[in-house]
Simulated assay, not measured.
Amino acid sequence: MTPRVVWILLALLTAAPTWAQTVEPEFRVVTTSFPPFSVEVDGRVRGVAADLVQAVLDDLGVRTPIEVFPWARAYETARRGPQVLIFQIARTAERETQFKWVGEVASYDVHLYRRADRTEIAPAGLADAARWKIGGLLRDVKTTHLQEQGVAVTTYSDEANGLAMLLGGRIDLMPSDRQAMLQRLKLAGLPPDRVVPVLRLDAISGPLYMAFSPDTPDALVQRVRASLDRVRAGHKDGGRS
């Protein structure tokens, strides 16, 4: 082997780690239709949380599309991996070790809602609310919380269906975030006072997150977390629209 060939091989081996660091890692991004946090508009996913996540992807130079599934499928896809980023997901004790948590993407203010004309439904607390028929999204934190408190829940796969069930009298109460309920009513062409909140679910009200499937390398999680911090700082400084 000539000295020139040896020099070329050494140069390639030395450059290899640098090259590897510049390659963008591949990962999927999943969510569910949950206005105003995420919703498909003209083939693009937009919303309070979706826009933030897209800004993070842009900051990283990642061209991964945001995939929209029913919540139960999005949840299982992220839980099983490999290397799947999910948003907007509530962080609970049960889920703590099932995902690798990146950071907050939105706030979450959850109440039980009834039809405005059902004035007889005025629960003093969750135990009292259990006297009525309560609906809940399949595999959702709100449903899980209610069931853990001993409340029977009639499940549905889509919260738009849940609203239809509430308005149609098939359920008496429905848990929902305030912003999400207002947006859902608007999309249905209904006035904002068509339903009213009767009981706040303090235990599950709080931030919503983006999180990775548990098989994701810590270096990737940290990289996306750093990007989220940069994007937030840009928003605060007026550096991003």
Rank of each mutant, 00 (worst) to 15 (best):
L85W: 10
P217G: 05
D59W: 00
A78V: 07
T144Y: 06
G238Q: 07
T144S: 11
S33C: 07
A49E: 08
A152L: 09
L112D: 11
T77G: 01
D172G: 05
G135S: 12
A49F: 08
R44Y: 03
L163W: 09
L126K: 13
L12I: 14
D237Q: 10
G234Y: 05
Y75A: 03
L10T: 03
L182T: 12
F99G: 04
I171R: 12
L12D: 00
A164M: 06
R73D: 04
P123H: 01
A152C: 00
Y108H: 12
A78D: 06
V110F: 02
L12M: 07
D172I: 00
V30C: 03
L60E: 03
A219E: 13
S157P: 15
L173R: 09
R184H: 13
L166G: 06
F34Y: 15
L199T: 11
D218N: 13
P17I: 06
H145M: 03
A152H: 06
G162A: 08
L10A: 08
R115F: 06
V105G: 12
P217W: 08
M174C: 00
W7P: 00
V105R: 14
M181D: 04
A90S: 13
D237V: 02
Q183N: 09
K236W: 01
L166R: 14
E159N: 10
D172P: 02
N161W: 04
V39N: 04
S157V: 12
S205R: 12
